[in-house]
């Protein structure tokens, strides 16, 4: 029987650090085998050879932050059967979405030597703000395991098995002592999506939420608990506003406590 045509993979970069696409090259033991199953048709970080679309699967890294990128993501969507965002930037706007909270007036005060040379949008947004996205891989950066699971599921025509419960569950499964209970260390584990293997608690630090909010989180409950134990509101705002600051649940929590901090200051 004739072998089926290898599916075509494309890897795209928007505003990002390159770390999530590097994860593909970090699959040192699997990379060559993977290249045997899938045609790596467009992956500029690795190859100058370019195979034209359409593509069966596109991995999209980075947030959309310039007018050209808006056009580009739309074009990629048109050429792609299965579009997956990889990482916090493509999924939630990334660390650079911190600019989204700045007062728009502030943008008049650009202090480049020659600001007219720079093109940028006011907000750094996820791909899903502009096009439909078929699947999201979380993390800052994504993990090798989930990436391989995604590709293997895609090749086998099944749904990827990626957890959407909290880091807390992973932590308990690994038998790690709770850093909040034992050390009093603030931890976003109760509201953050699993996938990292409870890495930070395993190293005795609090989770800082790099996989973004879990499904139906309760950040208010966690926030109030932390406030009741002496955390200052500005610190709480910063806790929610890092690599997934513009993910809806963290964005709302950050805004709520930012208002509270303003009330504190004015009273």
């Amino acid at each position: 029987m004739a072998r089926r045509r290898k599916p075509k993979l494309a890897v795209w970069k928007f505003a990002s650090c390159d770390g999530c696409q590097l994860t593909l090259l970090d699959c040192e033991d699997e990379l060559l085998a993977l290249a045997g199953e899938i045609e790596i048709a467009y992956f500029l970080e690795a190859s100058r050879a370019i195979v034209r679309g359409p593509y069966d699967i596109s991995l999209v890294e980075g947030s959309i932050s310039t007018p050209e990128q808006v056009e580009q993501i739309r074009k990629i969507r048109r050429q792609t059967r299965f579009l997956v965002t990889i990482g916090a930037c493509a999924t939630a706007g990334g660390i650079q979405a911190l600019r989204n909270f700045a007062d728009v007036r502030g943008f008049l005060d650009l202090v480049y030597a020659r600001p007219e040379y720079i093109k940028t949008l006011e907000k750094s947004l996820p791909a899903s703000a502009y096009v439909p996205v078929d699947f999201e891989l979380r993390g800052c950066p994504i993990g090798k395991g989930p990436l391989l699971e995604l590709l293997s599921a895609f090749l086998n025509g099944r749904r990827p098995s990626i957890p959407n419960h909290s880091v807390c569950i992973e932590c308990k499964r690994r038998g790690i002592v709770c850093v909040m209970v034992a050390q009093g260390t603030p931890c976003l584990g109760p509201v953050t999506q699993a996938g990292c293997g409870a890495l930070c608690p395993a190293y005795r630090r609090g989770c800082y939420g790099c996989f973004g909010p879990m499904e139906t989180p309760n950040p208010t409950s966690l926030g109030n608990w932390l406030l009741a134990r002496g955390m200052a509101s500005p610190d709480l705002v910063r806790l929610f506003r890092t690599f997934n600051a513009y993910a809806p649940a963290f964005k709302e929590a950050g805004e709520r406590y930012a208002e509270a901090a303003d009330v504190d200051r004015s009273s």
Binding site: C17, D18, Q21, G94, I95, C140, Y208, R238, T242
Partner: peptide, 25 residues
């Protein structure tokens, strides 16, 4: 991505984690 802008107002101990995101390599 304006890292130097949003580092303003962050606490000193956040600098290693935030600036790491400038480069995944």
């Amino acid at each position: 991505r304006f890292f130097e802008a949003f580092l303003r107002g962050r606490r000193f101990d956040e600098a290693p984690d935030i600036t790491a995101r400038i480069c995944g390599i």
